[in-house]
Design a protein around this nucleic acid. Structure first.
Ligand code: NAD
Ligand code: NAD
Lengths: 210, 210
DNA sequence: TGTGTGTTGTGACTTCTTTCACAAAAAGGT
DNA sequence: ACCTTTTTGTGAAAGAAGTCACAACACACA
């Protein structure tokens, strides 16, 4: 029942890929089909599904409905996850557009920016608020997670405020170190690193095939 | 000398963190300082640096200048990496803004969008072009890498064109499977997965401390 | 009923990654 | 000159992740 970080990531992807196409009550999927979608192996998919106790049928595969539901019981907080976004620049706008209209366990409960010109503006349906309000909103909404999309300068300071206000997980887009207490989880999303990795790996495909 | 994917990612981060602050010819950094910045361990940092043959000094640490340079010889293609961006929506704009003005081994050589209304528009200094031109630009510029920032629908089709035109690495933001030949490297960047992972991990911190 | 085919579930194995732990090196003080 | 402190470099151990291989099962069709 204990799923590792890697498994959690893949389960999230399986679910999204399955949810994208409509399926009926009696649709099944094979481990090798999921594997192909994520460029993995069938054995790995079966291990992942084993980790959350999902069981399939020989010769038919896994029933999609229960599979999606079971992934949900692992990934989704039954009380919902409430998220604040800090930094309503280009990237913040993209994230808001992306989150908009997803009926899911993840809800944006506030978008914040330090720029007074941004306060009050509505971005993709979310009203941008002043940073002064952020502690209040986090407390009132009991937000557990923050998306940090400010420039690197000042990211640590914003981070400290978020943690102090009760946030326990941060998705960090800023290319800054972010020092946090142990109880807080930081997930770095780094486009520059992704590009550099790809650029590096496509040279020398022979060695380091990973 | 063979660096794994994980090591490459961390080296990229070390370099960026070091490059952010100015340093003089004789500045040194300790493995534990780098470790703190990436929430890792000193031993791991030393292993990473060992992988690229960088050597430090007892009691003084690693000389920053040569370290940054040596990371560069691993990560950077000496001929430069030329990148095309497909999908000049919110996310594409954010990426263009992010890439703009970085004097680095990574260069955006074209931005493309299927929306005729977008063609000709200039985004963060990059002129958005019609999809008709993409094969020509990839060939003329010898672009090796693409950033895919279109909706999931049609992502596979765009991907096929990119691969056919000669692209060998793709950073994929679209929540779509992307089936590619073995010789092409796809790096998925997935905000939804990052959020779900954080949301999942901050519950149950006791178990699965990874 | 029996045979053939294709898939799951999983123990065992392999490979990759991280951590541990300590000798050796360098610097500073006395 | 010697001792103390701090840090590197790395072999060895531990741990995590991924792969293999195959028994067990389910279905199809004769
Ligand atoms: N755009 C990308 O693809 C990309 C990729 C990786 C990382 N990033 C990073 O994400 C961050 C945001 O990128 P962007 O393109 O949206 O930049 P941006 O300049 O368009 O937006 C930044 C926003 O943050 C606000 N801000 C600045 N300081 C703040 C503070 N202390 N508190 C609250 N809000 C503050 C600004 O007012 C602005 O609206 C940057 O750190 C960037 O390096 C961006
Ligand atoms: N915004 C985010 O934070 C985020 C996060 C994860 C994934 N994504 C994904 O990134 C993609 C882009 O997001 P966005 O917010 O920029 O969306 P968007 O709708 O703002 O932009 C998409 C752009 O792609 C263009 N486009 C559509 N089909 C195309 C095609 N076949 N060829 C070329 N261009 C095409 C559209 O004209 C539009 O300009 C989406 O797949 C989204 O799911 C976004």
């Amino acid at each position: 029942m204990a799923a590792s970080g890697k498994t959690i990531e893949r389960l999230s992807v399986y679910r999204r890929l399955l949810s994208m196409r409509t399926f009926s009550e009696e649709d099944y999927v094979y481990s090798h089909e999921l594997a192909r979608m994520v460029s993995g192996t069938a054995a790995q998919v079966r291990r992942d599904l084993m980790a959350i106790g999902v069981t399939g049928h020989s010769k038919r595969g896994y029933r999609i409905g229960p599979l999606v539901e079971e992934i949900g019981t692992l990934l989704d907080d039954p009380e919902g996850t409430r998220i604040v976004l800090v930094g309503a620049g280009d990237l913040g706008r993209a994230v808001l557009g992306f989150m908009k209209g997803r009926s899911s366990a993840l809800t944006i409960v506030g978008a914040f920016d330090s720029d007074p010109a941004k306060a009050g503006r509505v971005v993709h349906g979310y009203r941008c608020r002043s940073m002064d309000e952020i502690e209040g909103v986090i407390a009132a909404e009991r937000a557990q997670v923050a998306i940090l999309a400010t420039p690197a300068d000042g990211a640590q300071e914003v981070c400290d405020r978020l943690v102090e206000a009760g946030v326990r997980g941060i998705v960090n887009f800023a290319p800054a170190p972010l020092i946090v207490p142990e109880a807080v989880w930081v997930e770095r999303v780094d486009i520059a690193t992704a590009l550099e990795k790809v650029a590096c790996l496509i040279r020398g495909v022979d060695e380091t095939t990973m």
